[in-house]
Amino acid sequence: MIERFSLPGTISAMHIESIAAPDLSWQEQALCAQTGADFFFPEPGSSVREAKRICGLCEMRSACLEYALTHDERFGVWGGLSEKERLSLRQTQRQ
Rank of each mutant, 00 (worst) to 15 (best):
47 S>N: 13
39 F>E: 01
30 A>M: 06
73 E>Y: 11
30 A>L: 06
75 F>H: 15
87 L>H: 12
85 E>V: 14
81 L>V: 09
92 T>V: 09
46 S>T: 04
35 T>A: 05
67 Y>P: 08
42 P>G: 04
47 S>P: 11
17 E>L: 02
11 I>K: 12
67 Y>M: 03
43 E>D: 10
74 R>C: 11
5 F>N: 13
93 Q>F: 10
80 G>R: 02
81 L>A: 11
10 T>W: 06
45 G>K: 09
42 P>E: 01
30 A>V: 07
48 V>L: 02
91 Q>K: 09
25 S>N: 13
66 E>F: 12
33 A>K: 06
36 G>F: 05
41 F>H: 07
10 T>K: 05
75 F>T: 13
52 K>L: 04
39 F>M: 02
60 M>W: 12
75 F>V: 13
29 Q>V: 00
55 C>R: 01
79 G>Q: 02
4 R>E: 07
58 C>L: 01
67 Y>S: 07
52 K>S: 02
34 Q>Y: 00
90 R>K: 15
65 L>A: 15
91 Q>F: 03
38 D>P: 00
68 A>I: 09
45 G>V: 08
54 I>R: 00
74 R>K: 14
45 G>Q: 08
18 S>C: 07
21 A>D: 03
56 G>I: 08
27 Q>L: 13
17 E>T: 02
7 L>A: 14
61 R>P: 11
23 D>F: 14
43 E>V: 07
57 L>F: 08
82 S>T: 14
57 L>W: 06
13 A>E: 08
89 L>M: 15
30 A>R: 06
61 R>Q: 14
21 A>H: 05
64 C>F: 05
74 R>L: 12
82 S>R: 04
44 P>A: 02
22 P>V: 05
37 A>L: 10
81 L>D: 09
87 L>D: 12
35 T>G: 00
28 E>M: 10
71 H>N: 15
86 R>S: 02
41 F>D: 04
82 S>M: 04
59 E>L: 08
53 R>W: 12
85 E>S: 15
44 P>S: 03
28 E>L: 11
19 I>T: 07
90 R>W: 14
4 R>N: 05
25 S>F: 12
51 A>N: 01
49 R>P: 03
66 E>W: 11
91 Q>T: 09
80 G>S: 03
5 F>H: 13
56 G>C: 05
13 A>F: 08
89 L>W: 13
10 T>I: 03
76 G>Q: 01
28 E>V: 11
12 S>V: 04
68 A>H: 06
59 E>C: 06
66 E>G: 11
32 C>F: 02
49 R>E: 15
67 Y>C: 03
80 G>F: 01
47 S>H: 13
95 Q>F: 04
8 P>G: 10
83 E>G: 15
24 L>S: 09
48 V>D: 07
74 R>Y: 08
78 W>C: 12
75 F>E: 12
3 E>N: 05
33 A>C: 08
75 F>S: 13
75 F>W: 14
84 K>Y: 14
42 P>D: 01
88 S>E: 10
93 Q>K: 11
51 A>Q: 01
14 M>V: 01
70 T>E: 10
59 E>G: 12
7 L>W: 13
72 D>K: 14
5 F>R: 13
5 F>A: 13
13 A>C: 05
82 S>I: 03
87 L>W: 11
77 V>P: 12
82 S>V: 04
21 A>V: 01
65 L>S: 15
